[in-house]
Amino acid sequence: MWSVNIMFNIVVLGIVSFLTDVSSEMVYPLIPIFLTVTLGASPAIVGVIEGIAESIASLLKVFSGYWGDKTKKKKELAIAGYGSSFLGKVVLIFAGSWGGVLISRVIDRLGKGIRTAPRDALIAESSKAEARGHAFGLHRAMDTFGAALGVVIAYFLLIGNINNFERIFLFSMIPAFLGVLALFFVRQPRELSAAKKKLSLSWSALDTRLKAFLILAFIFNLGNSSNQFLLLRASKLGASAPFVILLYLAYNITYGILSYPMGRLSDRIGRRRILVAGYFIYALVYLGFALVTHINTLWSLFIVYGFYIAFTEGVEKALLADIAPSHLRGTVIGLHATLVGLALLPASLFAGFLWDFLGASAPFYFGAGMGLVSAVGLFVILKE
Rank of each mutant, 00 (worst) to 15 (best):
D143A: 11
E54V: 00
L216D: 09
Y279S: 06
R119H: 09
L335D: 04
L216H: 08
L237R: 07
A310W: 00
V304Q: 08
F353E: 11
Y308D: 02
S17T: 12
W67P: 00
G334M: 03
D322C: 04
W98L: 13
L378P: 02
V27W: 06
A117F: 05
K128N: 10
L258I: 08
A324I: 04
P29A: 13
S55L: 01
I303W: 01
I174H: 10
L19D: 10
I303M: 13
Y279C: 07
G133V: 05
N164H: 13
G83F: 11
S24A: 15
V292G: 09
P363L: 08
H327A: 10
V340P: 13
R329L: 02
F289R: 03
I123K: 03
S300T: 11
A250C: 06
A78R: 01
A44G: 07
N161R: 15
L354E: 06
H294R: 15
A368S: 15
L249E: 06
L344H: 07
P189R: 06
Y305H: 12
S259Q: 10
I107G: 12
I281V: 14
L13Y: 01
H294I: 00
E191G: 15
P363R: 09
F8K: 15
R119T: 11
I107A: 11
N221S: 13
F213A: 14
P363I: 03
I123P: 03
A194E: 15
F177V: 09
L339G: 13
A351N: 10
A135Y: 05
L178S: 10
R132S: 14
V292R: 06
M1A: 12
F364K: 02
Y308S: 08
T38K: 12
E54P: 00
L232R: 08
E25D: 14
A310C: 05
K196S: 15
A41W: 00
G96Q: 14
N164K: 08
A182L: 08
I323F: 06
V62K: 02
L258G: 03
I153W: 04
L320S: 10
I6V: 05
G377P: 02
V11Q: 08
R119A: 11
L210I: 02
A44N: 01
F364A: 06
L222A: 10
S226E: 09
L110H: 05
N296T: 11
S104F: 10
R109S: 09
N252Y: 09
V304G: 07
F302R: 02
L222D: 10
M26P: 01
F220C: 04
Y255N: 13
G330Y: 00
A154C: 04
A78H: 00
L138N: 05
V90E: 14
I31E: 14
